[in-house]
Simulated assay, not measured.
Amino acid sequence: MSMLSRRDWGARPPKDAYTTLTHTKGVKIHYTGDHVDPALAREHARCVATVKAIQDHHMDGNGWIDIGYSLVVCPHRTIFQGRGAGHLPAANGAGLNSDHYAVLGLVGTSGLTQPPDDMLLGILDAIDYLREHGGAGNEVKGHRDGYSTDCPGEALYNWLKAGAPRPKTDESH
């Protein structure tokens, strides 16, 4: 598993202290909700810029203390530490954040809409990490399962409904 710490990806410090979270029912999966440049799948440096832009939007646009996601997964099976394990996310919706961690897959409504196998593997890695280090329970749901939204998009949601199977290209298992 490849995880970039907040320092590694150049995260801004949070504006305030996080609320502690010791256990959850599980994890909710998200997508960006807008266009994701397909070049992201070829150029990993774009992933870093995209995660920074999301953090900026959440902090400066939404007024949140930090990026709203616990972890972010790019097409290269890299996990970016957002708020991390043990901290309340902000992305699941008011009143819903304490029930599930929030993991973002960097796909959107146009451009890059189909999660590559390495992204799916990274999401599975992120779920395992949150179970081991954050007390995440067994539920794995889409954002729309608790909040009125199209998130995490059809491709990720169909994968979740199918039981989030490991892609056939995974040779590690």
Rank of each mutant, 00 (worst) to 15 (best):
K161H: 14
A49T: 09
Y18C: 07
K28T: 13
I123N: 07
C151Y: 15
T32K: 03
A162D: 14
N92D: 04
E171G: 01
E139V: 08
Y147N: 07
G108Q: 06
H58Q: 12
P38T: 10
L106C: 08
G26P: 11
D34R: 07
R144F: 06
I79A: 06
Y129L: 15
E132Y: 11
G142M: 08
Q114R: 12
K161A: 14
I123Y: 11
D99L: 11
H23Y: 09
N62R: 13
K52P: 01
G10Q: 13
H35K: 10
D128K: 12
D56A: 10
L40G: 08
D60I: 05
G84D: 09
L160E: 03
V72W: 02
A90P: 00
Y129W: 15
V140H: 05
D34N: 07
H35P: 02
G86Y: 10
R6Q: 14
R166F: 07
G82Y: 00
H35G: 01
D117Y: 02
R42S: 10
S2I: 14
R6L: 09
Q114Y: 08
T169G: 11
G142H: 10
H173E: 14
V27I: 02
H30A: 03
P14E: 02
D150M: 09
H44N: 10
L71E: 02
T32C: 02
S98W: 13
S172C: 00
T169C: 10
T19W: 06
D117V: 04
K15L: 14
K141S: 04
V48Q: 14
G111V: 01
A91S: 12
I127C: 07
G95D: 03
N92Y: 05
A90L: 12
H35M: 05
S70T: 13
P75K: 06
V140M: 04
G10C: 13
N62H: 10
V107G: 07
A49P: 00
V72F: 06
L130A: 04
T22E: 14
L104K: 09
K25S: 05
G10R: 09
R77V: 09
T50V: 04
K28F: 09
G134M: 14
K161Q: 15
L4N: 07
